[in-house]
Structures are given as C-alpha cells and as structure tokens.
C-alpha cells in the first residue's frame, strides 16, 4: 500500500505540495482504521467500503481546507467519514449485521480457545445490544484507535465528555458480558 502511493511513477502529481503529502500520509495511516470505524458503525461491510472510499474522496477534495486549529488531521478525516456514514444510515434506514468476523489468530490451548471463543461470543452479543452512539464510541476507540481528544473532535463534544461516555460504554459492555457469562 505504502509502495503503491509513494511510487514515483504512479504517484499523483504533488501540485498542492504539503497538503498532498500530508494527505498521502493520512491515507496510508488511516485507511484500515477508517474502514473499521465505518464498518463498526454501519455493521455492513459492503456499505462500509463505499462510505470509506467516499470519505477519502471528499477529504481529498477538501484537503486544502483542513484547519489544524480545529483538531488533528486524523480527527478531521474521521469527522468526514462520520457524516458520510450517518448519511448512509439515514438513507438506508436499516441496520445490517456486522459482518466482520472475529479473527482468532492466537494459538492457544484447546481449552483456552474454547474459553476465548465463549468470551468473544458474549462480547459480540453485548455489542449488539449497544445503541448507535455507544457502538460508534467502541468503533472509534477500539477499531480505529483514536485518542479521546480525537473522538471528541469527531463526535463534537469535549474530551472529558467523550472519555466519560466511553467509560460508560465500556462498563456497559463489561456488565453485559458478565451477565452473558453467568447465564452461560
């Protein structure tokens, strides 16, 4: 991916200089994170691909309008993606199941694997019980890896408020997981 973008033969003409370079770096560092966030929000992989591409396209067109005073470039990009994703949600008026399957790459003992599988199934169940705002926070934090300040910029609140809401959501997940585990 980095090679594809930085290859001299194929690189887009860098007429806009710094903004172009910064956008390339942003693209490289955010592509998968942005997809993960959008997919977590939409719970539809196919729609997430379209929305992510659209967000990058919009960001590319607006790259010269980025204002560092209003937050990091990454938060700016996620804000654009958020608007596109929410527009998509409004258009669709439906929610699809999250297609992103857990990818167990760990090589643990069979009994451990069973325990992990149970735990993650409980977590998926708990996540499905989250509302849209909570799911967005989880996506921004755990899928995209944004800082609390960046999350605050994206959702339009203060960092303190974003942290508080994130903590509540995590607590909710923990409780839900515990309940599922106890029932199991």
């Amino acid at each position: 991916m980095e090679e594809a973008l930085s290859s001299p033969a194929t690189k887009a003409p860098s007429h806009s200089g710094a903004a172009e370079t910064a956008f390339e770096a942003l693209y490289r560092s955010s592509r998968d994170d942005l997809f993960a966030y959008v997919a977590g929000l939409l719970r539809d992989r196919s729609a997430a691909e379209d929305v992510t591409a659209l967000a990058f396209e919009r960001a590319y067109r607006k790259r010269s309008r980025f204002d560092p005073a209003r937050g990091s470039r990454r938060a700016w990009l996620f804000g654009i993606a958020r608007n596109a994703a929410l527009d998509e949600l409004r258009r669709r008026r439906r929610t699809a199941e999250l297609i992103g399957e857990p990818q167990d790459t760990e090589t643990a003992a069979p009994e451990q694997q069973a325990e992990v599988a149970l735990r993650r199934a409980a977590l998926r169940q708990a996540m499905s019980a989250l509302d849209g705002r909570e799911r967005e926070l989880v996506s921004l934090k755990f899928f995209a890896g944004l800082s609390n300040a960046e999350i605050a910029t994206v959702i339009g609140t203060t960092a303190t408020n974003a942290g508080t809401r994130l903590h509540r959501t995590v607590e909710k997940l923990r409780r839900a997981c515990d309940e599922v585990a106890q029932r199991g």
Binding site: L5, A12, A36, G40, G100
Partner: peptide, 20 residues
C-alpha cells in the same frame, strides 16, 4: 480489538489505485 472489521484485500487495492 479482535472484533475489529478488516477490509478485503481487493478493496484495499482498488482504493489504493483511486488514491494514486
């Protein structure tokens, strides 16, 4: 983190092309 959706490789390639 394990629940994180990962993009398809062909979509990544396609988007990289568009980015280029």
């Amino acid at each position: 983190r394990e629940q994180r959706p990962e993009p398809r490789e062909d979509w990544q390639r396609e988007l990289d092309e568009r980015a280029r």
